[in-house]
Structure formats: structure tokens, C-alpha cells
């Protein structure tokens, strides 16, 4: 086992080699700055300024975007945090993110391992399995709303044939959760699959051959060669997906509106509802800011627990 692990790590470049400072680095400093400038400008113009603006709004009371805002300090935060609805939405969001990220990662790794097998027509099958990733959200929602339509959907028709249902997929509390989680996982697993598939391709066949000579069976090869290679990717993917899923608004909003009642309402939806439906711009932006702070904190802890080798 020890030998195996050593072989595996030899295939990877040592981390120190990554940052080789060229002798010309100093001379080219201006060039580097020029390379960085457009991205930085774009980031500042289209990202930092809007974020700061939105955060600033969270310290004001305003009923609409055309209303004259009045400064209330931390008032919005105190008010929002004291509402049970906020904490309900918070835990809904945690549940949604944990469930969808876990399922995406498990399914993603599974499908990636499957598609990594050698067989005829592999490329075509890969494209097919990864296809949901490239669909626009709006299309995904329409297609699934149609598939899961309570009266005319193919799913309920099938269920009725076997004597179940019909199920109201978007308005029975349990079914609504199932629907948004299922569709989210269906839509975003391919991204995870692609990334893992790419990582699998970095493992050289020699490694497996050597392991086979050492007498390692398929399970051991998976545990000792494959998974260690996937680990750094896994760390980044879980982080990216968690940020993404905790903040995911459109799928949930378009499918259930956070309903029935507030059953599937998580923080991004509550932020939207406050801002646009309850005439409380300050409250809405305070919630958005709290999401932001929470995620930043989460990521900081995350990288502290799982430091990436590169940094």
C-alpha cells in the first residue's frame, strides 16, 4: 500500500515546481500589469461596485428602488435576523445545498468512473451523458415542468399505470423538495462528471498496470490510485458547488416560487421576495449580504481545514 501511494504521488509534479520565477520577471512587471488590468477593471466595474452598492442599500430603509432611502444602520439586519422565517429559510438553504452537492458529487464520480471505461462509441455516450450541462436554465425548467405536470405529464402518466398518484410535484411539500433537488442534480451533475472525467484522464495507465502487478484488485486500485488523484479536484468542486447551490435562485424560484407557502423557500428566494414582493429593499439586501458573509466565512474555514497544496 505504501508503495502504491508513493507511485501515485510520483506521477504528479512537486508543488514547489509550480511557481518558478523567471529571471526576466522583474523586467516584465509592466507587461504582467497590462495582462492583469482588463480583468481587474471588469471585476471592479461590473462586480465590486455593484456588490458595494447592494451592501450599502442594506443599511437603508427603502420601499422600492425609486423611493428615497433613509439610513437605519444595522436596523435591517436586526429586524431580519429576529424573524423565524429567516432562520427557516437559512436551514432550507443548508439542506438544499448539502443534499444537491452530495448527490452531484456521488453521482458525478460514479458516472465519471463509468464513462472512463474503454468501449466503442465512448465519445458519443460521453456527450450524451454530459449534455444537460449545456441547456439554458429556462429550458431545463420548462422541460421538467412539462415532464412533471400534474395532469398531462409523462411521469404521472407512468405512475398512474402502476397505480400511484397523481402527484402534485411542485405543491406537495415532500414532492416539491424532491422535484427541485432532483432537477438541480440532473442539471448540474454533468459539470461535476466532466471535471472528474478530466481528472481521471491524468492518471497514466502505467500506474494501474504497476498496481495490478503488485496484486491490487479493482477496489484497492480505486481507493489507492483513483481517489487520491481526485481529492484536490473534489475539494475545489465541493467548494464551488456549495457556493453555487447555496446561492441558486432561478431553478427553485421558477419551479416552486419557494412554495407551497414557504416550504421550499431558502435565503436567495427570501431576499428576492423581500426586495420585490414585500417592498423592503433594505431587508432584501441585508439577507443577500448575510448570504455573502456566511459563504465567505464558510470558505475561509473550508480552506483552513482542506488547504490546497498550491497555496
Amino acid at each position: 500500500m505504501v508503495t502504491l501511494r508513493r507511485t501515485a504521488s510520483m506521477a504528479l509534479p512537486a508543488p514547489q515546481e509550480v511557481f518558478r520565477v523567471g529571471p526576466l520577471e522583474r523586467r516584465d512587471r509592466k507587461l504582467f500589469l497590462a495582462f492583469l488590468a482588463p480583468g481587474a477593471l471588469l471585476g471592479i466595474g461590473a462586480l465590486f461596485i455593484p456588490v458595494l452598492y447592494a451592501i450599502q442599500l442594506s443599511f437603508f430603509h427603502a420601499e422600492s428602488f425609486i423611493d428615497e432611502p433613509t439610513f437605519v444602520g444595522l436596523g435591517n439586519y436586526i429586524r431580519v435576523f429576529s424573524e423565524p422565517r429567516y432562520w427557516e429559510a437559512f436551514w432550507h438553504g443548508v439542506f438544499y445545498a448539502v443534499a444537491t452537492v452530495a448527490l452531484q458529487v456521488i453521482l458525478g464520480i460514479g458516472i465519471a468512473l463509468l464513462l472512463h471505461q474503454e468501449f466503442r462509441g465512448r465519445n458519443l455516450l460521453r456527450s450524451a451523458a454530459l449534455a444537460p450541462y449545456i441547456l439554458p436554465t429556462v429550458v431545463v425548467v420548462y422541460v421538467w415542468k412539462w415532464l412533471l405536470n400534474v395532469n398531462y405529464g409523462i411521469f404521472n402518466a407512468f405512475l398512474e399505470n402502476v397505480g400511484v398518484g397523481p402527484i402534485a410535484w411542485f405543491t406537495s411539500p415532500m414532492a416539491a423538495w424532491f422535484s427541485i433537488i432532483f432537477v438541480s442534480v440532473w442539471y448540474w451533475t454533468p459539470f461535476v462528471t466532466i471535471t472528474f472525467l478530466a481528472a481521471l484522464q491524468t492518471i497514466s495507465d502505467d500506474l494501474y498496470d504497476a498496481a495490478a502487478v503488485d496484486g491490487a484488485n479493482a477496489w484497492k486500485r480505486l481507493i489507492h490510485i483513483t481517489l487520491p488523484v481526485l481529492k484536490p479536484v473534489l475539494i475545489v468542486i465541493v467548494m464551488l458547488r456549495t457556493i453555487f447551490m447555496f446561492n441558486k435562485f432561478d431553478i427553485v424560484w421558477l419551479m416552486t416560487n419557494g412554495g407551497p407557502l414557504t416550504t421550499t423557500e431558502h435565503l436567495p428566494i427570501l431576499a428576492y421576495v423581500k426586495t420585490f414582493d414585500m417592498f423592503d429593499i433594505g431587508g432584501g439586501t441585508a439577507i443577500a449580504t448575510s448570504i455573502f458573509v456566511f459563504l465567505a466565512l464558510l470558505i475561509w474555514i473550508y480552506f483552513w481545514v482542506f488547504p490546497l497544496e498550491e497555496h
Partner: peptide, 12 residues
């Protein structure tokens, strides 16, 4: 009503 009255849309 047909099943799922709480998800009845204008289109439905």
C-alpha cells in the same frame, strides 16, 4: 378540481 389545484397556472 383536477389534481394539484395549488399549482394551477393561468396556462393550466
Amino acid at each position: 378540481t383536477p389534481p394539484g389545484p395549488m399549482e394551477t397556472s393561468l396556462k393550466d
